[in-house]
Nucleic acid binder design. Structure first.
Lengths: 208, 208
DNA sequence: TTTACCTTTGACCAGTTGGTTAAATTATTT
DNA sequence: AAATAATTTAACCAACTGGTCAAAGGTAAA
């Protein structure tokens, strides 16, 4: 618990977030959440009627912590290079602070894409814009200004950016083993310089 | 079943692979594997004593299908650009044929890094080399030949390559939604041109 | 104090799950 | 053919899991 004077509902949500993001929907036991929140198991059902409902609340919390901030950057009025820099900076901050969140989101969406759909739709209508399209306009503008190569594709660039931000943190257990002799400190060091590395990697790739 | 004349043990392993890779360790039910293999549940325990043992066999199978082929390319005697091209080509082939495998591997390693460790160690000693180090040598050679930028870092390049190969397939349910209006055919089209896009993206980024 | 309402708890339940076991069936050896 | 071993099955079990419920505790209004 980060706060002592937190109400029960908040304590439950925080504990549920810890357990769900680490063990996933099917791997999570209601009893473990109750223990971590320091309450009786029945209280979970008093505040959130079922495991599914509690999971949905957690999923939405994690999702809305991840998407809106960064997608707002993508939607802002800004030159492309600056936008890329800001995006990488903000995104890596969030990811590093919540290293188990991306793999949680991806995995649960993979296992249950339909069940998650309604949550997603809500999250997006709340934001009220379509970030990928806006990013495509920026790319075209930069092309006309002669700043980037003519064969740059906005969608591929967008996906590449997300990939090299998220994947190194999400796949840490794998990458740390095959590239860093499973040395945790070496990998921390590797991640700490990622911001500039990623930024340079992307901009070098697209600039004319 | 791809083959009719397959022995029971093989049928079990194939069915287990399907279910485990899609639903993960904790989400998988032994009964479902038995049903899919067309046999009695007790037979699972006859051939593989426990769920853990069966899972271990599946995990090793998937892992050794993914790592060795591509890591051999990384270890081969080849100019850097050609090596990158071959790697991307081979890696994307495997990933696209087994789209649920990467997220399965990453997720299970994340949930149980220690339990998986022994399987990993076996897989690596079987291969008998350290691909990341070899790749670093290639990068240094290309630098001396003036082919690539001096500030290229081998480990970051290596991780970036894996990221933009795996992530777009692994995170498909997420990316398809936020960038493609959840249109499956559009995303298939997007993935079909990835080989050349990825290759160009990487080489443009590092070439002098 | 009494009443009414909200919160918390322990005991309990029905369905599920991984796993066992003894018997039946099939294949192999003698 | 008989015997021995390997494979397959149905019935069963103990532990676990999400969820319920009636009762107890606590709090504020009457």
């Amino acid at each position: 618990m980060t706060e002592l004077n937190k109400d029960t509902e908040g304590k439950i949500l925080e504990a549920a977030q810890d357990v769900f993001t680490e063990k996933g929907m099917s791997g999570t036991r209601m009893q473990e959440i109750a223990d971590k929140a320091g309450i009786n198991k029945s209280l979970l059902h008093y505040y959130y009627r079922s495991k599914e409902k509690l999971f949905g609340a957690v999923f939405k919390t994690v999702l809305t912590r991840f998407l809106p901030k960064t997608l707002k950057i993508l939607n802002a009025e800004m030159p492309l290079f600056e936008k890329i820099e800001k995006f990488v900076d903000a995104y890596l901050d969030i990811i590093m602070k919540n290293p188990s969140a991306p793999i949680f989101l991806i995995n649960e969406m993979h296992k249950n894409p339909n069940g998650i759909a309604s949550i997603m739709i809500n999250a997006f209508t709340d934001m009220g814009f379509h970030p990928a399209e806006r990013f495509a306009v920026d790319v075209e503008t930069a092309k006309k200004q002669g700043l980037i190569r003519d064969d740059v594709n906005a969608k591929h660039l967008f996906v590449n950016m997300m990939s090299i931000c998220i994947f190194p943190v999400a796949a840490r257990p794998l990458l740390q083993r095959i590239g860093f002799d499973n040395n945790s400190k070496d990998y921390d060091l590797f991640l700490s310089v990622r911001k500039t590395e990623v930024r340079n990697f992307i901009i070098n790739s697209i600039k004319k």
